[in-house]
Nucleic acid binder design. Structure first.
Length: 287
DNA sequence: CTCAGCTCCTGCGGGC
DNA sequence: TGCCCGCAGGAGCTGA
């Protein structure tokens, strides 16, 4: 599922077709995703103009001209697909000639421009909510999320404070959205590989120099992934249906048994399970 | 507070 | 071919 780079890629793909545009009709094809939609969501969206499409952690935030913000989370399997927009139409395809809806197309935003944004999510771990823009930071889903890893508030001194005394693994700590926002299983594995730190290491037992290296590794991994349009495993796609290609760059994720990519390292990638989730790492160059 | 485990849901690939 | 099992990019909740 989408982690920060995938959500950022979706945001960038949707923004040109959504920002400044009016939602002519919001079509809810079921009453809920992970949680019930808020009361009157379809009516509250209908006729609203989207001022700006932002991202916070793995959430997409669409600020509306009615002082409300639409919060969208893609969960494990959520997608936002754009069709019927200028630039997305294939030759010979017209606005009235849109692809048929699929089984798990749960919400459709019909834009006044003729573009259509389809939220598709087979597993329905995704979520949508609408809240006053002024209260956004206090929203229960967003209030306790840590700093953006690509922002100024995420640095070695901050990480030192957060990890101090923690006995759980660094893998678990980096997956904890309260410590740092937006990382998921793939990018934690990849960042730890890049930093040469074992996912098993106790979070509170990483030295200062290595913590600095970790901050740099997290940033670099995310920047490279965004540059590549995210990772397309299984069915993740960008808003225009294109595939990201960062998965071809994975050092360890999904590479169990394969040789380590570090030059001159004779190690092989191992898969272990930590708090119910796969961790991939090279036992030889990650300590 | 911290931490591990469970839970929600569907789909896919591998082994028999 | 068909069935069963394990696994999947998240994260809130529970209980120790």
């Amino acid at each position: 599922m989408p982690e920060l780079p995938e959500v950022e890629t979706v945001r960038r793909g949707l923004a040109p077709s959504l920002e400044g545009q009016v939602i002519a009709r919001a079509e809810l094809r079921r009453p809920d995703l992970r949680w019930p939609f808020p009361p009157g969501m379809a009516d509250r969206l209908t006729g609203a103009r989207i001022l700006q499409l932002r991202r916070r952690s793995k959430y997409l935030l669409a600020d509306l001209d009615r002082a409300e913000t639409l919060i969208v989370h893609l969960g494990m399997s959520g997608r936002m697909l754009l069709s019927g927009a200028a630039g997305v139409l294939r030759p010979g395809q017209f606005h009235h000639d849109l692809p048929a809806l699929q089984v798990h197309d749960h919400v459709i935003l019909h834009m006044a421009s003729g573009a259509r944004v389809i939220f598709n999510d087979p597993r329905r771990f995704g979520a949508m909510d609408l809240t006053p823009t002024a209260d956004l930071a206090q929203h229960w889903l967003l209030a306790r999320i840590g700093p953006e890893p690509l922002g100024n508030d995420f640095h070695a001194a901050y990480l030192a404070r957060q990890l101090a005394g923690r006995r759980s693994s660094i893998k678990a700590a980096l997956l904890d959205q309260r410590i740092v926002a937006g990382l998921g299983n793939i990018y934690v594995c990849e960042a730890l590989f890049r930093a040469g730190i074992s996912p098993l290491r106790a979070a509170g037992r990483i030295g200062g120099a290595r913590r600095e290296r970790l901050v740099g590794a997290i940033r670099a991994t995310l920047i490279d992934a965004i540059e590549a349009g995210g990772s397309s495993l299984r069915d993740y796609r960008q808003a225009d249906g294109e595939l990201g290609y960062f998965q071809h760059t994975f050092g360890v994720y999904g590479r169990e048994g394969a040789p380590c990519m570090t030059p001159d390292c004779a190690g092989r990638v191992r898969r272990i399970v930590q708090s119910g989730r796969s961790s991939f790492y090279c036992p030889r160059c990650q300590r």
